[in-house]
Design a protein around this nucleic acid. Structure first.
Lengths: 244, 244
DNA sequence: TCAAAAGTGTTGACATTACACCCATGT
DNA sequence: ACATGGGTGTAATGTCAACACTTTTGA
């Protein structure tokens, strides 16, 4: 086993979308008193781990993502580093540390990433008993400063989704406009006019209609689209060159 | 002297504006061969230091800022953490480390901040011989990954200045619209129509005209404005509540 | 046939851009 | 008097939000 860097960790806020709600992947943390069976700790945490000796911090995040979802090459972006000395000082966290990780530093700095995955691609064997998708609108009690992390990640996601086409990372390759709209509505926690949304998206040349229809729960079957990063990158460059 | 955390540092990209160009505060790093007098190292670095044991990372950045500019309570925002294992491996950096900081870790992770200051407020005694304002458009050779840091900080600044009133942090409390416009033009590296700029700014209720004029180099004397964060925060809240 | 979601078009409000013009004043 | 930057207005264009209407098809 490779050795860890004692005072340095990464945490990943992994977002997924299930056609209805925006979820985050959390792991249940439970601790029972061995004699009485009393539940001493019962809360949730993000997916995280210490950085290994000789490992790039970004690679540590990729490793955590691969370990917990079985996925690589997916959207992953560092958004903030949490470095307060008191971030591990809540009673639950102190108890957990004392019993499970006694040699870890008292001041662990955590570099935090957010990730967007098509949750249908997360392999079932990685969704084991302690890890599950939880709606961001209904967060349970969280360990450490992980609630703050999720809130901040969500804020980042909301800001970024206006300017960059990252929403598609949360959907299957092929999607309908209703699905895309439901995604935006879930992330922004608002409702969007269907017709204006259609108009806006149809102007985006990088959202490409296929010669394919799909029957959803609607009466009428709906057009299927894909997102093309190639087209996006090209049209984006044009835009930039025009503004100069 | 307090002890440092071996593998953790902060770096500050401190921006200043001198009515003409956007500058960054850099420190000259020189090393001469004691016998031959040959210049072994001659480049620049950002303002940085290791985090101290028991210190919040944000506080370390504030400390660096206070040490290097004499200022506190100024705009400071974390924007990225640089954690690659190879970030200190350039020949200059290895040589410098070997001679000056032999016991520091080979893998130092640096949390990077950007700061906006009114450069007229930076105390002269802090601008000692090795520290000076350098135009961002004409960067010298930089140590470590500090060029990448400055580039990324500038990118952040450019994105953020559209959405939040942070430009004012770079100006004296009282300013004219020409000064404000010159600032935007310097940051965005573009030219803005004077009349449209005026219109846009006069719609911002948090940019308040004073009963005061100032003679600049223009024939006519120009109106003086101040920025009110109070008004901004209040009108911002209204906006948010309307959008729901 | 009718309810429900897919798809299309029109309009007015508002913001952005590109200009033309006058004002005050130091040289 | 005139050049220079300060200050004001107006028309064209583009973007965004609100809303009416038609199409398809399962129940």
């Amino acid at each position: 086993m490779e050795s860890i860097i004692n005072n340095l960790s990464v945490d990943c806020v992994i977002f997924g979308f299930d056609n209805q709600t925006l979820n985050v992947l959390l792991t249940k943390r439970e601790l029972k008193d061995p004699s009485s069976g009393e539940l001493l700790i019962s809360d949730y945490t993000l997916q995280g781990h210490h950085v290994l000796v000789g490992e790039n911090v970004d690679d540590a995040a990729k490793r955590v993502l691969l370990d917990k979802t079985g996925l690589s090459n997916i959207y992953l972006e560092q958004f903030h580093t949490f470095g307060n000395t008191n971030r591990l000082q809540k009673p639950n966290d102190q108890l957990w540390k004392k019993l499970m990780y006694p040699m870890v530093s008292e001041h662990v700095v955590s570099v935090c990433y957010f990730s967007l995955v098509d949750s249908s691609k997360v392999k079932p064997d990685h969704q084991h008993e302690y890890t599950s998708w939880i709606p961001v609108s209904d967060l349970p009690e969280l360990g450490y400063d992980h609630e703050e992390m999720i809130k901040m990640a969500l804020e980042h996601l909301r800001n970024k989704i206006f300017r960059e086409p990252i929403g598609f990372e949360l959907l299957p390759d092929k999607f309908t406009l209703s699905e895309l709209q439901a995604l935006y509505e879930a992330i922004l926690n608002t409702s969007i006019d269907r017709r204006n949304f259609w108009k806006k998206v149809s102007q985006m040349k990088y959202v490409i209609p296929l010669d394919e229809k799909r029957k959803t729960n609607a009466r009428r079957s709906s057009q299927v689209f894909i997102f093309s990063r190639d087209v996006y990158d090209r049209t984006k460059k044009e835009k930039l060159s025009l503004s100069y």
